[in-house]
Amino acid sequence: MTFRMPAEWAPHERTWMAWPGPNVTFPNDEELAESRAAWAAVARAVRGFEPVTMVVGPGQSDGARALLGPDIDLVERELDDAWMRDIGPTFVTDEEGRLAAVDWVFNGWGAQEWASWEHDAKIARHVADLAGVAVHSSPLVNEGGGIHVDGEGTVLLTDTVQLGPERNPGMTRQEVEAEIHARLGTTKAIWLPRGLTADYPPHGYGTLGHVDIVAAFAAPGVVVAHTQPDPAHPDHERCKANVALLRTQTDAKGRLLKVVEIPAPTVLTEGGADGDESGQWVDYSYINHYLCNGGVVLCAFGDPRDEEAAEIFRGLFPDRTVTLVDARTIFAGGGGIHCVTQQQPAVRG
């Protein structure tokens, strides 16, 4: 029986999220409060289009309810962190319209020294149980932010995630592709060399190169790609190379990819003046958006390019409402709107 991962623009049953709790990512009460407000803003935006279930740590439901409102479902489970895209299951469907869940091995984004994952490694199974679906266990160390599919056989990957020694030491590209294809129902993998500069040490809480901040499918044969117009940023040349590579690629159906460039926000660093070594390079990206039923929830950064990006997405998704949500606090924790959400596809019956 063949299962495949539907494209994100396919209809959803609901969205799953995880609530920020006290941990190294949110190291003090002020940052935790700011993060909870940011996660709540995303949840509220998504709830305008489809149901949302928030997994919260034991004893945290009352505080979450106060920020989320009455119409978001809450369930309590032990959590280490709050990135449901990565710790949750990857939902797949078969030809009969039945739903299942892939449980990848989660090891704290490559066993990074700041990460804890005792509880998060079990969240995919908890969510699958709550959804009432069978679990397909994979031996591959992988996260939901490390893959992006078109629903027609093509998957985007990065070398530094699936092939990095921190996750799958000793595995070849062919072995990784075989496992990815077996779990997602894909037949063609398109590999990018790496992610954005700030996604690697020593720049904070990175993933070591997730693709969902670099490139994403917007339709069969169409990819949106992050570009950095400012040559002062180290991602300037890297993004040019990614775009050039993507434009040479065909998908599983043999279509030459159409690449839509999405310029990065104008800000280059945080914690110092742009280009100043006292600041940290940022990886602010509009690529890390989330598609939900009838909507696009798009990262905003209080930046002049926010509306420019929104207009591009309105052109790509004319039948969806684009909602901008300030994502700066989420990016400070190491991810974006796509990173904190995980879709459960709608199935027949």
Rank of each mutant, 00 (worst) to 15 (best):
F313Y: 15
Y290C: 09
H226F: 02
E237P: 02
R255G: 08
A232M: 10
R314M: 11
S285T: 15
P231Q: 08
E270K: 13
R247F: 00
D319H: 11
A332E: 09
V282G: 08
G254S: 10
Q249G: 12
H289L: 09
E261T: 05
T269H: 11
P263E: 03
V296K: 13
R305D: 04
T329R: 15
I312Q: 14
A273N: 10
H233C: 01
G336Y: 01
S278Y: 08
E311N: 14
A244P: 10
P265K: 11
S278G: 07
Q228P: 02
L316P: 15
A264Y: 03
H233T: 05
G294F: 12
H226G: 07
H289P: 00
I262D: 01
T266E: 01
L256G: 14
V297R: 06
D230N: 12
A310H: 13
G275W: 01
Y284D: 04
G333P: 11
T329G: 08
R255T: 10
W281D: 03
L257A: 05
D306A: 13
A219T: 06
Y290V: 11
A225Q: 12
E237N: 07
Y284H: 15
D230V: 00
Q228E: 09
L268C: 03
I287N: 07
V297F: 11
A232F: 01
P220Q: 04
N293G: 07
E261I: 01
P231C: 00
R320V: 08
R305M: 13
D230G: 03
Q280A: 15
L256H: 15
T323A: 03
C299G: 06
